[in-house]
Design a protein around this nucleic acid. Structure first.
Lengths: 107, 107
DNA sequence: TACTTTTGGACTGAAGTAGTCCAAAATGAA
DNA sequence: TTCATTTTGGACTACTTCAGTCCAAAAGTA
């Protein structure tokens, strides 16, 4: 699975590589055709369930697809707010580390 | 300015280091006391304007405060979704890079 | 021309959330 | 214990955001 610039581009590529129309994929995933079109255009976000369906249908790793999706949303979020993106991500990663150790049973 | 585990902890520390009650800081920032309490407890998010007011009042860098805040929100967002956090941040940073070059006038 | 796909506008219902108000709980001083 | 102040959080409102739907126009194809 190739990582495109956005989640929408990624799933669009998966679909076009198989020469399938939106309608057909949408039916397979059991979602509205227009909804799928919007997801490909990044104007609607997929739910976790839809990401799972994508992964199954296109036979790609759902972890990779989830990374593609989450990285999109956090990238846009940080972009909106001026710069400092790499600092934000660096600190965020430390916080995740900290939160993880807090969650798992200590010792 | 010390970076605490969360944005709330960070501003709480700034306040307690000066031995000020919530009421007093809230008045200075012109927000509800309860609102400030909630921000310190991370149950409400500060607006950009409030972050600016914090920075001014406590005489700390608004950039640092913004990083403290943004890293909080993206950390929680990624935490909620299983693991892969570092991969997500890595990809997100690449996307930000790409988006930045797209925004600024090419060539 | 006729058919299919793609795109996007407009809307709805639901979910989320900033901000307010108030009162109970905690803290602390006398 | 009492009194005053601070801290905490519940409940509510108003507002915004957004997934999901429906539909129709535009674009593409034969």
């Amino acid at each position: 699975m190739k990582l495109e610039k956005t989640f929408g581009d990624t799933v669009k590529k998966l679909r076009e590589d198989k020469n399938l129309p939106l309608r057909e994929v949408a039916e397979a995933l059991n979602i509205d055709t227009s909804m799928l079109g919007k997801i490909e255009k990044n104007s609607r976000k997929p739910t976790k369930q839809i990401i799972e369906k994508f992964a199954k249908f296109f036979k790609v790793s759902s972890k990779d697809l989830t990374i593609a999706f989450l990285s999109d949303t956090v990238a846009y979020q940080v972009m909106e707010e001026e710069d400092f993106s790499s600092e934000v991500f660096k600190v965020a990663e430390e916080k995740v580390e900290y939160l993880k150790t807090k969650k798992s049973p200590e010792k």
